[in-house]
Amino acid sequence: MNRSSARSHGSAEREVPVRRSRYDWRATAMFIGPTIVALALVALLPTLWAMFSSLFDWHFHRPQARSFVLFDNYVRLFGDARFLNAMRVTAFYTVVSVVTTLVLGIGLALLTRAPFPGKNAVRALLTIPMIMTPVVSTLVWKTFFFEADLGLVNWVLGLAGIVGPAWTASSPSAIITILVVNIWFMTPFVYLVMDAALEGLPHEVIDAAKIDGAAYWQRVWFVILPMLRATIVFTVIFRITIDARMFEIIHVMTGGGPARDTEVLSLWIYNAALRNFHLGYGNAGGVVLMTLVAATCLVIMLVGLRDLYRRTGSS
């Protein structure tokens, strides 16, 4: 949304009366300085410390015994079956839930496009999953819906003559419960973004396609979705960063079980660094996670937007 404004700002078309210096040093220090200092303290410093500590064999309770091991922690990580499992689980969980929320969110936005009675109320109610405290929603899903004997899901399945599994305690149903809650939680986010984006599309283009005789699905596929492409790319990137850091749903729902089938990287790092107190090793995992997220997002951005900017640049 404000991507375009950021770009136009970068090209600095605004006329500003030139004083002595190119930059407003004093005003910058006053307006922006505190934010940069604050973020340097709570974000940059910890990140650098995490990278630094990942080069050490460092146990929280034995700080004197720490030793510099260079990249040994990283070498160990890639031979650690539990870590590799966490990478697989994270990738699977992220891909499935990003794709599903994207499809459902865009679908919902298209469905609620044309006016209908109670539209505003519906939009308000659809935001509820994502503003509900995730810990609470997960507890509700776990206790009331996925509970094996008295839960709603198995009761409904029972009506159809199916005996449901002990959802959170067995595989592969445990990962399904987590996906369901995450998709329920995040679809409204995609919906809101897409709803706002659809509102901003030029109606003349869509109307023109309609007059030209394009059916609804053709208009969606060939006109609307291509115009939403930049929004979709940014939404995917955003969704990946949210899923890659997801912790609470899993921590509350399964604690990573059964048998680590739902242990994502966030949880692995939490266990390694803050349960077993291997700070260096856990942080090495953190650096890997951070790098993977950044690399994935960068690739998606480059691939997703490539000819888009070339095209707008040439026309």
Partner: peptide
């Protein structure tokens, strides 16, 4: 950045 990366340090 995933929050857990900040949380440990």
């Amino acid at each position: 950045v995933p929050y857990i990366v900040f949380a440990v340090p």
